[in-house]
């Protein structure tokens, strides 16, 4: 069997894509924890100042929580949370490296976003399909933050590289 030559690579943190009016930079998350169950209790216990965010809501500084489902969220913090496992009413798992973050900025960032995801105004879940890959998407003052699961980051990055060439 002939091996296919996969030329795409997972971007390293700091890698950048640029086109006129568009900059996309890859970041590694500081720390993150998947929480499920009583999300209010989870935030109160693990990161009391964290705000729960839906799709394209404005990201504050850490800590914050990106809602995934009715009873699941990704709690993003500056430092890893020590505790995993079952609490009273919720579960927690370390997820620091589950996602890579792509930050899309520039005056044409909205076109990149329009190319990669549909509008879902007011969605309470930050989870959506971005460029065909499951992602958590939030807004930044000058663009968007897109968290893609690390194993799919290579394909998503390559797609973005192609998109910004033709927009």
């Amino acid at each position: 069997m002939v091996e296919r030559d996969w030329t795409t690579r997972t971007p390293e943190p700091g890698a950048t894509l640029e086109a006129e009016g568009i900059t996309i930079r890859c970041h590694r998350q500081d720390a993150a924890t998947l929480v499920s169950g009583d999300l209010a209790a989870a935030i109160k216990e693990l990161a009391p100042s964290a705000q729960m965010l839906g799709l394209l809501e404005l990201l504050p500084g850490a800590p914050f929580a990106l809602r995934i489902a009715r009873d699941r969220a990704l709690l993003c913090t500056r430092d890893p949370l020590a505790s995993e496992g079952w609490y009273n009413g919720f579960a927690a798992s370390a997820a620091d490296d589950l996602y890579l973050e792509f930050v899309v900025t520039g005056q044409r960032a909205p076109e990149v976003v329009a190319s990669c995801m549909s509008e879902q105004p007011g969605s309470r879940s930050a989870a959506t399909l971005f460029a065909g890959y499951g992602a958590l998407v939030a807004r930044l003052p000058n663009g968007v933050s897109v968290r893609i699961q690390a194993p799919e980051a290579a394909a998503a990055w390559a797609h973005l590289a192609n998109v910004i060439k033709v927009l």
């Binding site: 296919r4 996969w6 030329t7 795409t8 690579r9 997972t10 490296d97 065909g132 690390a150 194993p151 799919e152 980051a153 290579a154 394909a155 390559a158 797609h159 192609n162 998109v163």
Partner: peptide, 18 residues
């Protein structure tokens, strides 16, 4: 669209691929 060649059905990638 752009989903051809490598982009048609890309596999997942290992963190330690390099």
């Amino acid at each position: 669209g752009m989903r051809r060649g490598e982009a048609f059905s890309p596999p997942k990638r290992l963190a330690l691929e390099p």
